[in-house]
């Protein structure tokens, strides 16, 4: 499945090997892993819980991957996003992309993450010394997503 939402951790090496699938047309593999930090907005964070909207989550991620495939000449794409309770240093999300050349793989990987950050229905609730709080969305994430609205394809 190119898109997975799961509580369990994932093995990056295993997942990227499966994504590459021994395909000799692949010349480039780009990947991003998001992980839990122990600090956010000047508070120390001891853990977080990822909530999502069952029914929409996979649909939204599928649409983002489909848009990446339409915009760039890539071969395969993979998104794995965890939900449930997580601790600092835990893995949260994996985005992997294969293509013939690196320009498309890098761009598509970054695009998928920028759109995931602004369109995929996940919400983080973090635990700090002063209690639990919902993480606020960032204007910088909206700005990152917006810049893809006027981008041209990379030179192959």
């Amino acid at each position: 499945m190119p898109v997975r939402v799961q509580r369990e951790d994932f093995d990056v090496g295993h997942e990227l090997a499966a994504l590459r699938d021994g395909d000799p047309a692949v010349g480039a593999v780009a990947a991003f892993i998001g992980t839990v930090r122990d600090v956010n907005a000047d508070s120390s964070v001891s853990g977080m819980t990822l909530e999502h909207y069952p029914g929409m989550t996979e649909k939204a991620l599928d649409a983002i991957v489909a848009e990446a495939k339409a915009r760039w000449n890539i071969l395969q794409a993979l998104v794995i996003h965890r939900v449930g309770p997580l601790k600092p240093a835990d893995q949260i999300v994996l985005v992997g992309v294969t293509s013939a050349h690196r320009g498309e793989a890098f761009a598509a990987c970054e695009f998928i993450m920028d759109y995931l950050k602004t369109r995929a229905p996940f919400w983080k609730k973090e635990e700090t010394a002063s209690g639990t709080r919902w993480v606020e969305a960032r204007a910088s994430d909206d700005a990152a997503a917006a810049r893809w609205q006027s981008t041209t394809k990379p030179v192959p």
Partner: peptide
């Protein structure tokens, strides 16, 4: 229809 109302998303 199913209408969902939520805060700006914070995944990733």
């Amino acid at each position: 229809d199913e209408v969902a109302i939520f805060p700006p998303v914070t995944g990733g």
